[in-house]
Amino acid sequence: MKPASKRRIILAGALLAVTLATPALAFDRNSDAPITVRADHARLDDAQGIATYTGAVELVQGQTRLTAERVVLYRNEDGLSRIEASGTPAHYQQPTRNGGETDARALNITWSAAKRQLTFEREAVIEQNGNLFRGDVIHYDTAERVVTAEGGEDTGPGTGRVEMIIQPRSTSSTQGSNGSSQSE
């Protein structure tokens, strides 16, 4: 991909507080809450530590929810190590501390315990309290709370660039007094 067609933006601090205001925004393998999976079909390869679910898959842990057409769970000696979801699109939802909700969607969503990262790929969109973040690939480092986004090829009606829409402070009653969607 040409440098002009692929743009990378790293956002931290205030911009992250506006777009992703939940403390972990991920599944937690150290949580006491079980992960419940519902699907039309399941295949478990216990020797490899891989479970594959297909057909209207719903994965829930606490109030975190992932829906997709296909979900693959990988386990190692430490427990759940990776989740790969695909759909048209796959959806990731999690409530925020201030009563709002993070709603993310992409054709592919991956959670990695080792990297402590969520990755949204292909037609990725994250919405929260009227704010929007869009890119071809969006990585969210759950430990450092840093978002990295990449634009894609300009192949038609879109520009191929990363897009972010931040609502003004006065337009959302669910935002904090500082205009961010995060409440401490």
Rank of each mutant, 00 (worst) to 15 (best):
E144P: 00
R70N: 11
Y92D: 06
D78I: 03
D45A: 07
E184S: 10
K115S: 12
R161A: 09
T142V: 02
E101Y: 07
G160R: 08
A124P: 09
D32N: 15
A33I: 08
S86T: 13
S172V: 04
G160K: 08
L11Q: 10
G135D: 03
V147L: 03
P168A: 08
A24G: 13
F27L: 07
R169Y: 07
A47N: 13
R122W: 08
D103A: 06
N76L: 05
Q61E: 12
A42G: 14
A56W: 03
N30A: 09
G62S: 11
R82L: 06
T171S: 15
E123W: 11
G62H: 13
T174I: 05
A33N: 15
P23Y: 08
R38K: 12
M164F: 09
V60Y: 02
T171E: 15
S112D: 12
L73C: 05
G156V: 11
R105D: 06
A106I: 03
E184F: 09
Q175W: 06
T142Y: 01
Y92P: 03
S112Y: 09
T19K: 02
F133I: 05
E144Q: 11
A68W: 06
P168S: 10
A143M: 04
I109F: 04
T22P: 00
D103C: 00
G152N: 10
Y53V: 01
G62F: 09
T148D: 03
V18T: 10
I10D: 15
Q48Y: 07
H41L: 03
D78R: 15
R8W: 06
S180K: 10
D32L: 09
T36Q: 14
A42M: 07
G135Q: 01
A149N: 03
Q48G: 08
G13T: 07
I126C: 01
Q167C: 04
P168I: 02
T52Q: 08
V18R: 07
L11K: 05
T52P: 02
D46T: 14
S177L: 02
V71E: 04
I9L: 04
N178T: 15
R29E: 10
A33H: 15
Y53T: 07
G87H: 06
M164S: 12
T64L: 02
D154F: 06
S5V: 03
N178S: 11
F120D: 03
S183G: 15
I10S: 12
S172M: 02
A56S: 12
A42W: 04
D28P: 02
G176I: 00
A21F: 01
G13N: 14
W111I: 03
G130L: 01
K6T: 14
L73W: 06
R161P: 05
D46E: 14
R105L: 01
G79K: 11
L15I: 07
E58S: 13
V18E: 10
N129D: 15
A26N: 10
A56Q: 11
I35W: 04
A24P: 01
L59T: 12
R82N: 10
I166M: 03
T96G: 09
R134F: 05
E144V: 00
P89Q: 04
